Amino acid sequence: MCELEGDRNKWAEKERNLRGTIKCVLKCDVHKSNPLDPVVLPPADCLVSLLCLEAACKDHSSYRAALRNINSLLKPGGHLVLSGDLGTSFYMVGPKKFSCLPLTEEFLREALSAMSFTVDTVEVVSQADVAQHDICDFSGMYFIVARKN
């Protein structure tokens, strides 16, 4: 955000302000039509999901349903920011192995379009450009900014 605003050096100040603004953390279940149930909030300007939906969804249809559900939390013109790993079928937390839905850039674009999002930005970073690790079998990372129509 600081870079977009033209001053990368103010990140510590932004972090302090954000931490001071947060009042509570809500549980979210993307498989519910109201993911924040029982809480009901007015539609948001922006939602961010990082390394989340591909871990919560078992197949492409449940991923699309999760997108539809979180779409309901956004106001028209609101932004959805997604980031995650491409092609990941598992990830490790310590010695425990968890399954993950392998995603492709093409699927993500199609799924967002089907939910009436306009994709503003897509950035893909290949595995070769990321530090190697053995906690997952990813082929790359994605960063997407989409706008709800």
Results as ranks from 00 to 15, higher is better:
L103Q: 06
S62E: 14
V119N: 08
L86C: 10
G94S: 08
L18I: 15
E54A: 13
W11C: 11
E15M: 14
E54P: 05
P42E: 15
L73N: 03
Y142A: 13
Y63V: 04
K148G: 02
V81L: 15
A56M: 04
Q132E: 13
D134Q: 15
V30T: 12
L80C: 05
K23L: 07
L73F: 03
S116L: 09
N17C: 04
V40P: 03
I144N: 06
K58M: 12
K10H: 06
R109K: 03
T118G: 09
K14N: 09
G84E: 00
E54G: 07
E5M: 15
E105T: 15
M115W: 00
P102I: 01
K97S: 06
C28P: 02
A56S: 02
L101F: 10
L67T: 11
M92K: 13
F90R: 14
K32Q: 15
F90L: 09
M141L: 14
S33A: 04
V25C: 09
D45F: 10
H60F: 15
S116P: 07
K23W: 00
L112H: 00
N71E: 11
L103E: 07
L18H: 08
M1V: 12
D45S: 14
L101A: 07
F107H: 02
L41Q: 02
Y63N: 05
A55Y: 04
C100S: 06
S72W: 01
R68V: 09
G140I: 05
M92P: 01
S113W: 00
N17R: 12
L41I: 11
K32A: 13
G77L: 11
V124Q: 12
P38K: 11
A66H: 08
Q127F: 10
L103N: 04
V130K: 08
L4F: 09
L80M: 06
E3V: 14
V145S: 04
Y142C: 09
K14E: 13
S72A: 12
S61P: 06
D134H: 14
K96F: 12
G94P: 04
F107D: 03
S62A: 12
C52D: 03
N71F: 01
S126R: 09
S139P: 05
D29F: 05
S113L: 01
D45G: 11
C2I: 01
K58L: 13
F107P: 00
G78T: 07
L80I: 05
L53H: 01
S113G: 02
G78I: 11
C57M: 10
R8S: 13
T121I: 11
N34L: 15
E123S: 04
K14G: 03
T118V: 12
C52L: 09
A44R: 07
I144C: 03
A66M: 01
K27M: 12
K32D: 04
L51I: 14
P42T: 13
L4V: 04
L86S: 10
